[in-house]
Amino acid sequence: MDKPFNNRAWFLVLPVFALVAFSAILPLMTVVNYSVQDTFGSNVFFWAGTDWYVQLLNSERFHQALGRQLMFSAIVLIIQIPLGVVIALCMPRKGWGVPVCLVLMALPLLIPWNVVGTIWQVFGRGDIGLLGYTLNRMGFSYNYVNDVGDAWLTIIAMDVWHWTSLVVLLAYAGLRSIPEAYYHAAQIDGASRWSVFRLIQLPKMKHVLIIAVLLRFMDSFMIYTEPFVLTGGGPGNSTTFLSIDLVKLALGQFDLGPAAAMSIVYFLVILLLSWVFYTVMTNDPDRQGGAA
């Protein structure tokens, strides 16, 4: 009697379960399987226990890749979130400018990753690239292939160019949902532009910004295609991020066991950091109050 509706509804969810099982759970289990075994090919496996994990967590190479990855994500968030919010604030609220801005903002998001990498690879070249050529003619010595700083700068610039739009669009949607009355009230109260931002726009944008930070963190933490196309992880290992390192390990060296262990650790790190971000940002004293 207490049971709401009937249980046949669960059958509707079944296909999704099957799909998720095939696309996520089974591969993940395979990876877990690999991570605790050793193989020399021809389907011969040896039990390795936690060896690969111990080795990974003590490996200098992993520490460095993880450090680079964290550094990259931090820089990306520090630049893209404020920049995205600022651009969203500058966008027109009504009139013909709105669709124009929205289309312009959406453009970079529509370009495939590898094309973005290729564009910047050409763009930055000293001989034929607009950016590289111009900088070199202006007297800066710029070469992203040989110089570590230049490589980082280029990758960051590329990511900012590619993904800030996402933050802009999310922030803009958040801003649009604020009723006019709030701006009128602030105007009447003599609030400064900064106060309006801090007391009205930022609190009301909070929820979309949480989503923006999470998305940008997860995406940047998993970045692969663009730096692979642009620098291939170099010069040296200076732009070898976790994902690039993982591919080198798995497909370059064919060390399936260590690579599997790294995948699992990689996955757990993303999960943990996303959870930390989410908890910190949604820690709102009002939400415990109950009634709205």
Binding site: A181, I188, P203
Partner: peptide
């Protein structure tokens, strides 16, 4: 001037 709107406008934070 001061204004009271149809829906309450307060600074939430």
């Amino acid at each position: 001037i001061a204004q009271v709107f149809q829906f309450p406008v307060v600074y939430d934070t």
